[in-house]
């Protein structure tokens, strides 16, 4: 028998409030090209991105600590497939522990030729030193910055 189908498209708009902690963090990135974490006083760990409270001690975080711009790669992947509504491949992104931080911050990796995965994965290996670069025009988002392998 003839089986019918029906196509649907959800377009839903949200306006998310970022709250005090993330707002302050993004204003520093937007206006000063600086990245800050927040310290969990009980454990001494600096959480980046900053959270209002520690997921481990469950205590409120206290002082702001500037971190980076250098750091080390903790995780990466290089995407070679196209997914709807996601960037055109290839692109590399992952997580970097910035100097002075205890957790890793997500961001894109640039400045690495991605065509050959084997080669690119060596340049992005865990433990590789990177430096944070900031866009000229910044809006207050994680896309305002990216990481590049540090000149060796």
């Amino acid at each position: 028998m003839e089986l019918l189908k029906r196509q649907e498209d959800w377009k839903i708009t949200y306006t998310h409030a970022l709250g005090e902690t993330a707002s302050w963090f993004y204003v520093q990135i937007r206006d000063h090209a600086k990245i800050y974490g927040k310290r969990d006083a009980r454990s001494g760990r600096v959480l980046v991105p900053p959270r209002a409270f520690s997921d481990q001690t469950l205590e409120p975080t206290t002082d702001w600590v500037e971190v980076g711009p250098g750091g080390v790669i903790e995780a990466f992947t290089i995407v070679y497939d196209k997914f709807n509504n996601l960037p055109d491949p290839p692109y590399a992104f992952g997580y970097v522990m910035l100097d002075g931080a205890d957790t890793a911050l997500g961001g894109f990796f640039k400045g690495v030729e991605l065509a050959n995965g084997e080669e690119a994965s060596k340049r992005l290996a865990i433990g590789t030193r990177v430096v944070t670069r900031f866009a000229e025009k910044r809006t207050g988002d994680v896309l305002d910055f990216w990481f590049e392998p540090a000149a060796s």
Binding site: S43, V48, P49, D55, A75, Y95, M97, D102, A104, G106
Partner: peptide
């Protein structure tokens, strides 16, 4: 947070 499952401590 994924970034809390790496780094230090």
């Amino acid at each position: 947070y994924l970034g809390d499952r790496m780094g230090r401590g």
